[in-house]
């Protein structure tokens, strides 16, 4: 179980200025900015949960992850994971977690992936039988049997990411931190990774904390999201409940041959190109059928479709709402 309470963290960053004069004065004095990266962050995650941790860049996501991994220690507040304080009991704590940093690799670059795996086996002191079992299972589920003997540098991004995920699970961690795991992956790889993570969470009851900008990941995998902005937790709740809140927003896409667009109350234009318009409908003001009637009044409609708010749009409006 992960429990954070009132975590605070401030960073000191030195200022760098552009321009010739500023560069010379910088030789003599130094200025600092104080950035409050985390402001009273608290949440609780139970075993087996899968949580999406979202927020714009610089919101404090990676700082929180680092604290939970035990790499960073906060100024104040408490963090207890599985009965331990991560940065105080580093080696024992780290034995039970797996981390995948989307941008950086943990595999050795020039040797076959399987060699990296064996090194990890020795680092984590994994029992031979357990290792073999995990190895077989992970290799099969992630479809990496054929690339396991290739050096990491020769793999495509999708292949490498699957190997990274396998590498992080060899020691059967109870908690898995995934930082941007699907970034840069093609559609097929994304789906493969997502279904694997889902299975992992369901069958192994591994707690998964997923930070990502890809809202489709969130939608596909998580039931609960935590939104962080400017160091503060702004939202912590059920994804479905949030979507219902935005259920009132619908989108009508209409294609037309000729005519003019009439927008009554509750309708607003999102964008329009020649012959194609996307209109946002606030169903609290006007019903969908009335909206369709209003739009088609002066329009020769050739095609029309109605869609609910996607997670992406919901998040954008959330960001706007909280001014982040």
């Amino acid at each position: 179980m992960i429990e954070l309470q009132a975590i605070c963290k401030t960073f000191k960053v030195s200022k760098r200025n552009a321009g010739f004069k500023e560069a010379l004065t910088a030789m003599l004095t130094k200025e600092y900015d104080y950035i409050k990266a985390l402001d009273n962050v608290s949440f609780k995650i139970n075993d087996g949960e899968m949580v999406g941790y979202i927020g714009p860049n610089g919101a404090g996501k990676s700082s929180t992850i680092k604290i939970m991994c035990g790499i960073l220690s906060p100024e104040s507040g408490s963090c207890v994971i599985n009965g331990r304080v991560p940065w105080k009991d580093r080696i024992k704590h780290v034995n039970e977690i797996g981390v995948v940093f989307g941008q950086r690799s943990q595999l050795w670059w020039d040797v076959p992936v399987v060699d990296s795996f064996e090194l990890l086996r020795d680092i984590y002191k994994i029992d031979e039988k357990v290792y073999k079992g995990n190895f077989e299972k992970l290799v099969t589920l992630l479809h990496i049997e054929e690339i396991i003997r290739t050096p990491a540098r020769q793999l495509s991004l999708g292949q490498r990411m699957r190997c990274e995920i396998a590498a992080s699970l060899l020691h059967s961690p109870r908690i898995l931190f995934l930082d941007e795991p699907t970034i840069g992956l093609d559609a097929v790889s994304k789906i493969a990774v997502r279904s694997f993570i889902e299975k992992l969470n369901k069958e192994e009851k591994t707690t998964v904390i997923l930070t990502t900008h890809d809202m489709q990941d969130i939608e596909a995998l998580t039931k609960r999201i935590i939104l962080i902005g400017k160091g503060k937790i702004l939202l912590d709740g059920d994804l479905e409940a949030l979507k219902r809140r935005y259920k009132g927003q619908k989108k009508i896409t209409v294609e037309y041959a000729s005519g003019s667009l009439y927008l009554s109350d509750g309708l607003s234009l999102v964008n329009s190109l020649q012959g194609r318009a996307v209109i946002a409908v606030d169903t609290n003001v006007i019903s969908v059928s009335d909206a369709i009637a209003a739009i088609s009044k002066n329009l020769e409609v050739t095609d029309i479709s109605v869609a609910g708010a996607t997670a992406e749009e919901m998040v954008v409006s959330l960001y706007e709402e909280y001014h982040i």
């Binding site: 552009a18 321009g19 010739f20 560069a23 910088a26």
Partner: peptide, 16 residues
């Protein structure tokens, strides 16, 4: 040239 030059001047501690 100017950009590179100014960039080089930024490294104060390194210079000392």
């Amino acid at each position: 040239f100017r950009i590179r030059f100014i960039n080089g001047l930024q490294y104060r501690a390194a210079a000392y």
